[in-house]
């Protein structure tokens, strides 16, 4: 019952020790406040888990139904770019963790630097992602009226439709080739939803960089950096699942 002792303690001590300015009126102690907010942040992330969970369910159903189409279509993705992006995101997660550490140990310039690096890595990630999207768009692999199955019914015409040994993949029957559109739907929906989360995160990062320069997080109240860190790591985790599921189907 750590929370109730904290309350009793705060109530008793209320008269003789200063309440810091960031303690909200309805909490009895800073401990209770950080505890509650941290828990709330986790719960929010769990709602995100369920949200992506719905998308993953859809993905896995169709991957099983249309495995040949998913396998062929995933060869359109560049493992190199995807891998680089994965490394970038993991690195940004690492710098974000360092930012949390800087805030906790009250290193202001370190904190600002780490937040800026995290932000920049996010920009690079989205840049590469945008480049990949554009490639798909140019090759008519964006789902919709202009979608083209050319690369899958006639793999010899497409340099990307080759296996690890460089031999062209087997062509798909027209009805299975049409199902590659489903793969790209899911590809865009899932990576798009992930990119949206990154965009939101980067918006918050800009705000936090300015606040950090003003010293907001390095004077004892580092909690917000920590909460944001949780969010950023979560976005990272989602990508750790998206990468093998979307890029690495049947590569051998």
């Amino acid at each position: 019952m750590s929370d109730s002792t904290a309350i009793a303690h705060g109530a008793a001590a209320g008269t003789h020790h200063e309440h810091p300015p960031y303690l909200r009126h309805h909490f009895e102690s800073v401990d209770q406040q950080t505890d509650a907010s941290n828990f709330a942040m986790w719960l929010f992330l769990l709602t995100e888990v369920m949200f992506f969970g719905g998308l993953f369910t859809v993905y896995m159903i169709y991957r099983n139904w249309y495995y040949p189409a998913f396998s062929a279509a995933s060869h359109q993705l560049d493992v190199m770019l995807g891998g680089i992006n994965t490394v970038i995101l993991i690195t940004s997660s690492f710098t974000m963790a360092l930012a949390v550490w800087c805030a906790e140990t009250r290193k202001k310039s370190g904190l600002v630097a780490m937040l800026v690096v995290t932000f920049l890595l996010g920009v690079v990630f989205l840049g590469i992602k945008g480049h990949e999207y554009k490639e798909k768009w140019d090759k008519h692999h964006f789902p919709g009226a202009s979608y083209s199955v050319q690369a899958f019914v006639n793999p010899a015409s497409d340099p990307l439709q080759v296996n690890a040994q460089g031999k062209p993949l087997a062509p798909l029957a027209p009805d299975m080739a049409a199902r590659t559109e489903m793969y790209f739907c899911l590809y865009f929906a899932m990576t798009g939803m992930h990119a949206l989360h990154m965009l939101i995160g980067m918006g918050i990062l800009i705000f936090m960089i300015f606040r950090a320069r003003a010293g907001a997080y390095t004077e004892g109240h580092s909690a917000y950096v920590n909460y944001f860190g949780l969010y950023w790591h979560f976005v990272d985790i989602v990508w750790l699942f998206l990468f093998p599921l979307l890029y690495l189907i049947n590569r051998h």
Binding site: A97, L98, W101, L240, L248, R251
Partner: peptide, 29 residues
């Protein structure tokens, strides 16, 4: 209210492990 502070060494170890994991995933595929 000073929580237990995780040291950067731990973060770095996790970072290295994650990179190794990515390498392994790509290799295995």
């Amino acid at each position: 209210n000073e929580r237990h502070i995780t040291s950067p060494t731990v973060y770095f170890a996790v970072y290295v492990a994650l990179l190794a994991g990515v390498g392994l995933t790509i290799l295995a595929s």
